[in-house]
Amino acid sequence: MNQTLTLPTPSTVGSLDQYIQAVNRFPLLTQEEEQGLAIRFNRDNDLESARQLIVSHLRVVVSVARGYAGYGLPQADLIQEGNIGLMKAVKRYDPDHGVRLVSFALHWIRAEMHEYILRNWRLVKIATTKAQRKLFFNLRSMKQGLGSLKPQEASVIGQQLKVSTSEVLEMEARFNGHEVALEPATNEEDDNSFAPITYLASAADSEPSCVLEHKQLEMQQSTGLTRALASLDERSRRIIEARWLREGNTVTLHDLANEFGVSAERIRQIEQKAMAKMQVTMLSTI
């Protein structure tokens, strides 16, 4: 359905701010209007009815995406993922159950955003179980104030979310952690300045066998990545390099969609297919 409907996106509208203004201009539906459109879509597969249901709820996706601004991911990409969830909700919505679409759609919108965050945010590697994922997405809202959690408060949160107190405290530490430069600043003249690299050296690393092993591993990884990139077509290689191998800020799905003249969802599909192909190629070099 998402490939046949024409819907506004930040890339087609011009910017994220313009997109938000645009979706807020779509009129809200009454319950009777919503039910009539849902019936026509379910009964007759009327895509125009589905489009009206979707665009009238795009502002809901924007509102939900704002709640995940603290994860450091592009809002445009979060909104795109949420829109996919909204389309899935419209496809599955049954007006006979007596529930408004917004209530039904919130689950699908959040589910798509959660999956996107879990795929892309490095700190979430701790969240390997369902309970830990629930902790990941609820800890901030459950904390009282901005200070560190007290053991008693962490214990209460752990009981509510069915995880251990230590897991709560570890997740909070990951949220509150900040980056530390591995090497000292080049203009640092203080002999007592702290740099983690000073404390990471190992005597074993200077052994010739270890040095050779490390060099071989680096060469193998570099060769594997080069071969994997070479196995891709030009467009796929451009997308992977822009999304994952670029220094500094990565390019968003919408930026690439605008560059290639396709939808952001199509860029995401190409990216996933390219990553799978690269993984197979790199494994064959090991």
Rank of each mutant, 00 (worst) to 15 (best):
H214S: 11
N45A: 13
T252L: 08
N138S: 13
G72S: 05
G70I: 03
W121G: 04
R174K: 12
Q220P: 04
T285E: 14
N83M: 14
S263R: 10
M219L: 12
E207Q: 00
Q272P: 00
L146C: 00
A105D: 04
M171W: 05
R100G: 00
A38D: 13
F136V: 06
R66Q: 13
F26N: 07
T12G: 02
E188M: 07
W108A: 14
W108N: 08
D46R: 05
S284E: 15
L146Q: 10
A185E: 12
Q159F: 01
E170L: 07
N258R: 15
R43N: 08
L146T: 07
M1N: 00
C210S: 10
A76W: 04
L225I: 10
L245P: 09
T281P: 00
T250V: 10
H97K: 09
L283G: 01
R246A: 13
L78W: 01
E218M: 13
D205R: 00
R100K: 13
D46W: 11
A185G: 15
A257G: 15
L58H: 08
S263L: 09
N120H: 13
A195C: 07
N138Q: 11
M278G: 04
L182K: 11
V163E: 03
N83Y: 00
I109T: 08
M171L: 15
N120G: 08
E112F: 06
E259N: 07
S284G: 07
Q279T: 07
R100N: 05
R119I: 03
R140A: 11
L37W: 01
V62Y: 09
L101R: 02
E81F: 09
S222C: 02
E153K: 01
L58P: 03
T129R: 04
R174M: 15
S263M: 11
W108M: 05
L283E: 14
L29T: 06
L245M: 15
S263K: 13
A274F: 04
E34H: 11
D255E: 15
E48V: 13
T6S: 15
L123Y: 11
Q21V: 09
I84Y: 14
M142P: 01
L16Y: 07
G145A: 03
I197E: 05
E265T: 10
A131W: 02
L283Q: 12
S148F: 09
N258E: 12
F104N: 00
L135K: 01
S202C: 09
G158F: 04
L37R: 05
D96P: 00
A105H: 03
Q132P: 06
P10M: 12
T186P: 00
T281K: 13
G72A: 09
R110A: 04
M171I: 14
T250G: 08
V251Y: 12
A276L: 12
M171Y: 05
M275S: 10
R174E: 09
N187K: 12
E153A: 11
A154H: 03
S263T: 14
